[in-house]
Design a protein around this nucleic acid. Sequence first.
DNA 1: GTGAAAGCGCTAACAG
DNA 2: CTGTTAGCGCTTTCAC
Lengths: 319, 319
Amino acid sequence: MVSIVTVAKAAGVGKSTVSRYLNKGYVSEESRARIEKAMKELGYVPSTSGRSLRMAKSFAMAICVPMISHPFFSRFAERLESAVFEQAGEASRRLNQVIIVSGNEQERLKWLRERNLVDGAFLVTHEKFDPSSYDLPIVTVDRLMGKEVPVVTSDNYESTYKALLYLYEKGNREIGFIGGRPAERSEVMRRYDAYMDFTKEKGLPVHAFYEDFAHGEEMKASSLFLEREPRLDAVFATSDTFGFQTYRRANEVGYGHLDIVSFDGCMDDIIQKPLFTSVKQDIDALARSALGLLLRKMNGEECPLKVVVKTTFRKGDTA
Amino acid sequence: MVSIVTVAKAAGVGKSTVSRYLNKGYVSEESRARIEKAMKELGYVPSTSGRSLRMAKSFAMAICVPMISHPFFSRFAERLESAVFEQAGEASRRLNQVIIVSGNEQERLKWLRERNLVDGAFLVTHEKFDPSSYDLPIVTVDRLMGKEVPVVTSDNYESTYKALLYLYEKGNREIGFIGGRPAERSEVMRRYDAYMDFTKEKGLPVHAFYEDFAHGEEMKASSLFLEREPRLDAVFATSDTFGFQTYRRANEVGYGHLDIVSFDGCMDDIIQKPLFTSVKQDIDALARSALGLLLRKMNGEECPLKVVVKTTFRKGDTA
DNA sequence: GTGAAAGCGCTAACAG
DNA sequence: CTGTTAGCGCTTTCAC
């Protein structure tokens, strides 16, 4: 294997000079040129294990999601992964790999942490969890974990409010709300706040179905909801999965016309028809922001505690 | 940090004895007890970076998929990840982590390989690719890469044939076939073979739409297909996404009754209604088999070149 | 600016 | 069965 020593010999310098070159330390123009030449010729690539051992870092990070097969989570993971790879660079000492943890957050993260297999983590879960139990830089998406843990989120309140206004201005007066209530404090709850405020302000009746469903129970929830609320003319759903199931169920039971707006708007490539009218989260921006925050945290830099990413309203076929 | 030396001292033995203990070498009952005690008390956890450096291995593997947000791929990744974590064990030197590569297979795998960041890889892609360009143990799902690369796959031919027979026995005589034709040699093609054989044997007309679509083009393809074939009474789709889009499109244009069977059957949790009549792949078994093969390959053990996993036929609402 | 040397945690000879 | 030793590739003092 071609190591730093091989390069040093070929370039006729000491190995620490090569290391310094790699780490942007002071190196003369002369040495720099010879080192670069040697590296190119030998096809040198720095060894991550060497660095890891020496620096007690892994250059890897974990992304924890409840279920990787959920549309939003898988897309988030996808964007995050690209973002990490882009900034990894050629011979740098930046973050290299993303390890996906799907479910079992506590156990897996503990395991990875103990072995120094990750330098930081993103939490996109709602699992009950004590952040202080790990001394590991953490950034969450949507989840509020306390003053020290930065969170990246969408403008949940404003965009939900706007979507409701849209439904209202179309003439709807019986507007329902369906969604999963997070078990832990989460920015996602702002969507519910917006609904409650909106209905109050406009003097509309409240038709909310907001409980702690597991992912995968959307179908059941939607059925119950429509059964309980037989006179809605519109529904705001906190996720595509809820929106889709409500749409399906309404068709199935011949509910009559129902305007539907869903939050997320990330399933356009799977369900192209009907195109859901949605509040689209900017998943790419969420992922990039989250990465930015984590990198800062890991470097001990100043780090904002909250980043809000703008959503866009996309009119589709369902409202 | 508590290392092997800390443990050795506490136990009053040499560090190589501890190492031997860890690696199932010869250790006296006496030493074993003292080491175990010391480890427990100190909360020792072996360092992966130390091992990686010494053994020139990463204990990580890559799973390459075209798109992690595709239902089948994300579920496969999920199962694989659990399987890996289960066998990782307490203080073992087995595979530890799964690194997901979504898209950009060539570039990313090269990058990971150069840095010794993976010991092996699963390929679930159809990207054009020369396996010999990496000296890395590889196992594929469905894809045929040559005599040295083991493949895990479902009983594509038999199960497709059975599904077609089912449609036939329901009385259908105009049975269509829609699917994406893999760019590279793939076991998936056996589904098409089965269709061609079946129609020939039964003397049925061929209505096949089988081209090299990208993931995400299912909707367009289904529309074109139904336009071109206005008289079908049944369709066999090579994936849930194709099946779903065909179903949607047929409803949309008032196609008339159409029995649909889809391959995969992995979207039941997203699209619970209608429940698709499907040939369900046993994703968990596929993942476990693939892992088994890769582990063998990585250990240089004897390794079967092909493992076929049984599917099950599940009658739903669509046929 | 640069090189020599130490050492991160581990495994694998090797000699006992 | 066990301890000593060397060394994986790297970064980081510390003198020069």
